[in-house]
Design a protein around this nucleic acid. Sequence first.
RNA 1: GGUCCCGUGGUGAAGUCAGGAGUUCACGCCGGCCUGUCAAGCCGGAGGUCGCGGGUUCAAAUCCCGUCGGGACCGCCA
Length: 589
Amino acid sequence: MSTSSTALRTHLCGELRPDHIGERVALCGWVARRREHGEHLAFIDLRDHTGIVQCVVDGGADLRSEFVVRITGTVRHRPEGTVNDALATGGVEVGECDVEVLSAAEPPPFPLDERAPDVDETIRLRHRYLDLRRDEMQRNLRTRAKVNSAIRSAMDGQGFVEIETPMLIASTPEGARDFVVPARTRPGSFYALPQSPQLFKQLCMVGGVDRYYQIARCFRDEDLRADRQFEFTQLDAEMSFADQEDVLAAISGAVDSVVEAVTGGRLGDVPRMTWHDAMDRYGSDKPDTRFGLELVELTDLFAATGFNAFKAPCIKGVRHPGAAADTTRSRLDDLTDSAKRWGAKGLVWMRVEQGDDGATVLNSPVAKFLSPEELDGIVTRLGAEPGDLCYLVADDWHAVCHVLGLLRLELARPPVDASDLHFLWVVDFPLFESVDEATGRPVPAHHPFTMPHAEDLGLLDGSPEQLLKVRSQAYDLVLNGWELGSGSVRVHDPAVQRRIFELLGISPEDAQERFGFLLDAFRFGAPPHAGFAFGIDRLVALLLGEENIREVIAFPKTQSGGDPLTGAPAEIDPAQLEELGLRLLPRST
RNA sequence: GGUCCCGUGGUGAAGUCAGGAGUUCACGCCGGCCUGUCAAGCCGGAGGUCGCGGGUUCAAAUCCCGUCGGGACCGCCA
C-alpha cells in the first residue's frame, strides 16, 4: 500500500518534484502560510509531515493559518525566476487549484516555524499538538521511531527475544524513589512502577530465554533535568552464558545500527576507560571526552608544603589554555563560589604570565604562600603557558575529582553537537562507592547483584579500604558526557551473593523479604548472565543535536513534573480515594 | 533540601539596575488595497490586571517581602 495516497489525497506535499509536472494531484494538509494578492491571486503554502509545497489559487482564497484543506490541482513548473531553492519542492507549484476546507482553525498561539524554539516552553507543551506539526518535531519523532526500529532489527538479528515485563510490580526500597500505585483489590497495598525491568529480565534468564530485550518504559520519582524525565525509555537487554565482552559486543551492535540509521556513519571501535581513570583524569564517571582540560595530579609537589590549604590527601589542577585574558576577577569569584557549592573547601586560581625576565610566573592570591619549587612544579606539571588560567583544588581524592570535574565542564563544555560523537565505555566500576561512616557498611555502586571481578573476590573478606578496591564487572556507555546506560555481569553464585548481602547488611531474612522470588529462582538453576540498558531518549537527543530530551519526547513533563497539556498530576475524586482505601493528610503549610 | 536565571497585548523582545501617564520595536490578529509571491508588500485598526498577593512611596512593570509558574544546575537518580 502506498504511504502517500489515501481516500482524500494522491500525494504528499513534500514529495512533489519536476517529475510530477502535468499530473493532477490531490493534497491534504495545513495552511502553513499564505500570500494573498487581492481577489485575483493567492499563494498557499500547504504543509504536511513531509514538507511544504506552494499552491497557486487563482481568484484568491479565504483561508487562514492552520486551516486543514484539501487542494486539488495540477503540478507545473514555476515560472522563470520564481524557483525557490529553500524548498525541496521549490522547482514546482500546484496550479489550477480547487480548495476544500476540511477544518477551519483558530490562529495558533505561537508561530509554528523556526521561531518556535524561542517560545516559552510551557506554551509549546500546552499546545503540544501544534508544536508537533513543526518540521523539527516531526523529524525528532520520526528519527526516534527509526531508532526503535533499528534497535529491534539489530537485537532480533543477534538472537534476542523481545519480551514485555509488567508495569505493575512490587516496590523495592533500593535505588530511586518509586512511583506507587494503590491496589484497589487489596486496600493498603501498593504496586510500584518499574525503575527498570532488572529483576524480571534476570528471571527470564532463569526461564531459559537465553537472550532478552525490551524497549522498556522505566519510572523514577527523582528530580527532573534536561536529560531526565520521570518516565523514560531504555533498550533493556540480558544474555545468558555471557560475559562482559559478549554484552559490550551485542550492545555495540545495536548502537551501531542506530548510528547508521540516523547519521549514515558507523560507530567504529568504542574506546574504553576504567572508572578510576575516568575519575582521575576527568573527575566524572561519565567523562565528556570531546575536549581536554584534564585533571593533573599535583599531590606529590606539596608533600612538604607550608601552605595549610595544600596539606591535603590529594591536589589536582586543571589548565584552561588561553583563558586568562577574558576571565574577569568576578568570574573567578563566581567559579570559587561554585566550587564551594560543589563541596570544595576553596578554589585556587592562577593566572599564568610572562615575567620581566622571560620566565613563566603564576599570578595568584596564594602564590606568596608557595615556594618557588612548588610554583615551578605547578607550571611544569600542568604545562602552563603565559595566557593560561590554572585552577587547583586540594581535598580528598573524591572531592578533588568531583569538583574539578564539574569545573572542567563549567569552563569548557562544548554545546551538544550531533556531528561530534564521542562514545566511551567506562569499565571496572568499583563494587562499592563508599563506606558509610555511621554503619561501617559499604554502599553499593550498582545493584547488589553485580558480580565482582574474579581476581578481586578475595578482597571481599578484607578491610574497608580493601572493599573499596573491589572492582565490579559493571560498565557504562557514555556519549559526550551523558551517561547513556549501564550494565553488569550478575552474580549467579549463591555463596558470593550471600557474602555481598552480608557486607551490605542485608540479612538472609531481609534478602528473602526483598528479593526472595529472585533468590528462589536462582536455586533452581540460574545460568551465568549479564546485561545492559541504555536510554533511548538520551541517545536520540544527542544524535539529533538536541540539548534536552523533552525535544525527542512527544508529550514530556516540565521540570516540576507537570504536564501543561493535560494538567497532570491532578487531584482525584474523593470517591476514588474511598474505593482505594486512601485518605489524604492535611497539606503542610 | 539548595543555588542561580526568567515571567511585560496572542508570540518574541526592549523598558526594571537609576520609581514619574501601559511607552516602544518586530511578528501575529482584524479591515482595506494589491495578478508572481515565498517570514509577500502598502495603508489603517484592535489588543496588556507588566504572573499573583502584600509592603514602601505623593507615585511601583521598576524597590522590598511572600507566593505561583517556567528553566539550568548541585544534592538525589542502587
